[in-house]
Structures are given as C-alpha cells and as structure tokens.
C-alpha cells in the first residue's frame, strides 16, 4: 500500500473513532441550539473527506529509510517510552542516567562517552532544575542521597 493510501486509511479510522465515540455526546439539558456533538461530528466529516481523497489519489512521497535507521527510530521511541514510565518510579536521576546513556549510544557515542555524559547530565540537570529553579522532580530510589 502506498504511503498516501495508508495515511488516508488512518484518517478514515480516526474519523470513525471520532464518530462512534462522539455520537452519544448529548447534553442532558440543552440551553442552545448546537450541543456538544455537532463540532466533533463536523471535524470527523472533515477528516473523513481528507481520508477519502488520499485513498483515491494514492501516491507515495515518503523517502525510504534504511533498515538500520528504522531500528534506531524504534529503539529511540521505546527508550523514551520506558523513560516516561520509570521517571516517577525510579526517580529522576537514575532514570535520566539510563535514558541519556542509551540515547547517546543510539546516536553513536562510545560506552565511556555515554556513561560520562549520562552521569553529568542527570546529576547536573537535577541540581539545576530541582535545586536551582524550584521545579520539583521525583527523588525516587535515591531519595535519601540528595
């Protein structure tokens, strides 16, 4: 399937979700002629229209990426997702150290560079934001240390 077709299919799917979950949006007491449902429905129609045009038109203008790049993209996304999940549980400094090290490796750093930059970045930014700028960050498992 061409890239524009899959985009169009996604758009139709999104319009479908908007319509299905939006259909029941009715106010218990209506004070005005237009309720909470009309605008989401208009949006769904707009998105569905775009989806249909893309499906019919087809075409492909996504430049190909190498397999190695694709793995990198997936690895980076997963790393960031894990970072988001462990951010509060593990605490800011350890989770940032891990994230930063892995991301540095993905972008071509050596193990030593990744470890050092991860350590400097995690501790340094914690001191800057939490201590310096009063942005409260989760202390997590290292709670007693700082």
């Amino acid at each position: 399937m061409s890239s524009n077709r899959s985009l169009g299919a996604m758009a139709l799917l999104m319009a479908g979700i908007l319509a299905v979950f939006g259909w029941g949006l009715v106010a218990p007491f209506a004070y005005e002629p237009v309720g909470p449902r009309a605008f989401p429905m208009l949006t769904a129609v707009l998105i569905a229209f775009c989806g249909i045009v893309l499906l019919i038109g087809g075409g492909n203008d996504t430049e190909a990426v190498s397999r190695r790049t694709m793995t990198g993209i997936v690895m980076l996304t997963v790393t960031l997702l894990i970072y988001a999940v462990i951010f509060e549980r593990l605490g800011y400094v350890p989770s940032t150290f891990l994230m930063s090290g892995i991301v540095a490796r993905i972008f071509g750093a050596s193990w030593i560079q990744a470890t050092l930059s991860g350590a400097v970045l995690s501790v340094g930014s914690y001191l800057l934001f939490d201590r310096g700028l009063d942005v409260v960050l989760p202390a997590g498992i290292l709670g007693g240390l700082f």
Binding site: L80, Y83, A84, F87, T96, M99, S100, V103, A104, R105, F107, G108, A109, Q113, A114, S117, G118, L121, S125, F129, V135, V136, L137
Partner: peptide, 19 residues
C-alpha cells in the same frame, strides 16, 4: 555532537512537561 545534544533535549522536554 548529537549524542550530547539529544539527551539534553529529552531532559529539557521531560522536565518541562513534568513540571
């Protein structure tokens, strides 16, 4: 180098969103 820059951007973004 990108390996310094990118973790830094992630940190600024995450701290910003979390705050």
């Amino acid at each position: 180098p990108a390996w310094v820059l990118v973790p830094f951007i992630v940190v600024v973004s995450a701290v910003g969103v979390y705050s």
